[in-house]
């Protein structure tokens, strides 16, 4: 009789051991990728109540409670909308984010006033003194006395420019194989570019109309930092 129970217990233990090898977290990772988000514990706490700039739920019935009736939408006084519906009906395309009003001045920087085609003014435009000090030759950067850091400037260059212009400005980035007209900074035509010229190019795009404007991706300070680092590469 006792032996029977021991056998029983042994079998039980084995089954426990077998099952516990099976790790649900690992299973979740190995699972086939799915197109569904699955179930949620507390949907009312998962979905944004205010308009969220990075999500837009356009389905008007999303989150509609069929058992308790529809929930009144305070924003639109509309009873026919589900709770998770998150689109602003007053904006174009019901988007939740909008462009700033034209002429808006960004915080922390003054507008750059040189016109796109005014390359003469751009070439002569000196770097902001509080940011960058120039050496005697007029276009090399004096990193020691500048407020910007050479390492940080290089990091910015590598992130935003190197895939076309190459890690050392030799136009050997991976994208340059497909994109025509990427210049070598140290070539005869580009060697003498002033700091202001480089800044203007990053802001509005290149004079030949090939490189695009990068002002939306980089702040003015970051653009000056990259320009300063490009001056290093022109001499290499």
């Amino acid at each position: 009789m006792l032996r029977k129970y021991i056998k029983f217990a042994a079998l039980g233990l084995m089954s426990v051991a077998a099952v516990s090898c099976y790790d649900p977290t690992q299973k979740a990772l190995d699972d086939d990728k799915s197109g569904s988000t699955g179930l949620e514990y507390a949907p009312q706490m998962y979905h944004s109540v205010p308009y969220d700039q990075m999500t837009q739920i356009r389905d008007t019935t999303a989150g509609m409670n069929y058992f308790l009736g529809t929930i009144k939408d305070e924003r639109t006084n509309d009873n026919e909308r589900g709770e998770f519906y998150n689109s602003n009906p007053y904006n174009d395309f019901r988007m939740n984010s909008r462009l700033p009003v034209e002429g808006t001045v960004k915080r922390g920087e003054l507008p750059y006033r040189i016109e796109k085609d005014d390359w003469a003014a751009a070439d002569a435009n000196p770097a902001p003194e509080e940011l960058i000090a120039l050496q005697a030759d007029g276009f090399s950067v004096d990193w020691e006395n500048s407020a910007i850091d050479e390492g940080e400037s290089e990091a910015l260059y590598q992130r935003f420019c190197s895939h076309c212009h190459g890690a050392a400005g030799k136009a050997d980035g991976k994208v340059a194989e497909k994109f025509p007209g990427v210049p070598v900074y140290s070539s005869g035509a580009k060697k003498g570019m002033t700091l202001g010229h480089v800044f203007h190019t990053i802001t509005y795009g290149g004079p030949a109309g090939l490189m695009g404007p990068h002002a939306s991706q980089l702040s003015q300070k970051e653009r000056w930092m990259i320009s300063a680092y490009v001056q290093n590469l022109q001499k290499q």
């Binding site: 089954s15 099952v19 099976y22 979740a28 699955g38 998962y46």
Partner: peptide, 27 residues
């Protein structure tokens, strides 16, 4: 015993674990 254990484990433990976890979601 094994059947009951597996049933509970897959049905309840894994089932509950998957709620609110969207690992592998690829729309």
């Amino acid at each position: 015993l094994i059947a009951v254990w597996l049933g509970l484990h897959i049905g309840i433990h894994d089932g509950l674990y998957a709620i609110g976890v969207q690992t592998g979601y690829q729309p």
